[in-house]
């Protein structure tokens, strides 16, 4: 294509692009950037919401460095992300692989496995979860049958986080759907060829499914990591907002919320939010860089 044509097209694109982007841009500037800028400003202030903010410079940053509960909440959140995300993705992938072969009742299974994800942040979740993991709940009833006295999963600081991770794994519906979609895209002939070459199911999974699916795994990974760093609802509902017992389920966003709304310390909470944004951005960037080494591109 001649150079003049390109520039003519580009010029026309500029105008069209701005029209198409207008709603998004208005939203970005008014609803997102405005409040973001305000929260950045607030993170350098002492702000109770009941009185106007007071500029305190870097005080909040200093507090971030010395706040032990915050450091603990980072530990909790990182554990949740590093354990919960791979676990949930593994389960989602396993179920998707099992469900992928053309089998009867596929739509039914898919819907049932998705059901827990629909429940989301329902009020009833806390009660339901207690029915399972309470010290007199289903899990311990089953363990009692074989003579084991189980702990109070939710109420023991040693196991509370695990039960929330399990709750997270339980809602594997969305990544499962995305995996199913990805599996559909892998041409059947690859598998046929591999079978002819004498590859077993495990080998076929490792040699074909995993590499072919790696872009989708990557997509899920990125979104799940972002989502898990911001995890709030499940911990909030199960612990009644306390992050207990003994801060063992005190997620970063939960602490942020307690500091901001509970202690009316919105300046500090804003500083916390910016710290979290920084952490997520670094994680995502590292992931993008690392993806060059393991995400398979067809072309």
């Amino acid at each position: 294509m001649a150079r003049t044509t390109t520039s003519r097209v580009r010029k026309r694109d500029d105008r069209a692009a701005y029209v198409f982007l207008l709603p998004w841009f208005v939203g970005l500037v008014v609803i997102t950037i405005g409040p973001m800028a305000m929260s950045l400003y607030l993170s350098f202030t002492d702000y109770s919401m009941l009185a106007p903010p007071n500029w305190v410079g870097l005080d909040n940053v200093e507090r971030l460095l010395t706040d032990e509960r915050l450091h603990n909440s980072l530990r909790v959140t990182f554990t949740y992300v590093l354990v919960g995300v791979p676990l949930q993705l593994a389960v989602a992938l396993a179920v998707a692989v099992v469900l992928n072969r053309g089998m009867r009742g596929l739509a039914f299974y898919r819907s049932v496995f998705y059901l827990p994800s629909l429940l989301g942040g329902s009020v009833a979740i806390a009660v339901l979860w207690k029915q399972i993991f309470g010290s007199t709940g289903l899990v311990n009833d089953v363990l009692a049958l074989v003579g084991i006295a189980g702990p109070g999963w939710i109420s023991d600081p040693r196991t509370a986080l695990s039960s929330i991770i399990l709750l997270h794994v339980w809602t594997f519906g969305a990544p499962m759907i995305i995996f199913l979609a990805g599996l559909r895209q892998i041409p059947e002939m690859y598998y046929e060829a591999a079978t002819v070459d004498g590859a077993g199911p495990l080998q076929r999974f490792r040699r074909i499914t995993l590499p072919m699916l790696s872009p989708i795994i990557f997509f899920n990974l990125i979104l799940q990591i972002i989502g898990s760093f911001q995890a709030f609802t499940q911990a909030f509902i199960v612990s009644g907002g306390s992050g207990g017992p003994s801060d063992s389920t005190m997620f970063f966003t939960l602490l942020l919320y307690q500091r901001g709304f509970g202690e009316l310390d919105m300046g500090y909470a804003s500083a916390m939010a910016w710290l979290l944004l920084l952490i997520i951005t670094i994680f995502t960037a590292v992931n993008f860089i690392a993806s060059r080494y393991w995400v398979f591109h067809e072309s």
Binding site: M38, A269, W274
Partner: peptide, 10 residues
Amino acid sequence: MLPFHVVVVP
């Protein structure tokens, strides 16, 4: 990536 709680008040 923006945490939701912080933009609530603004």
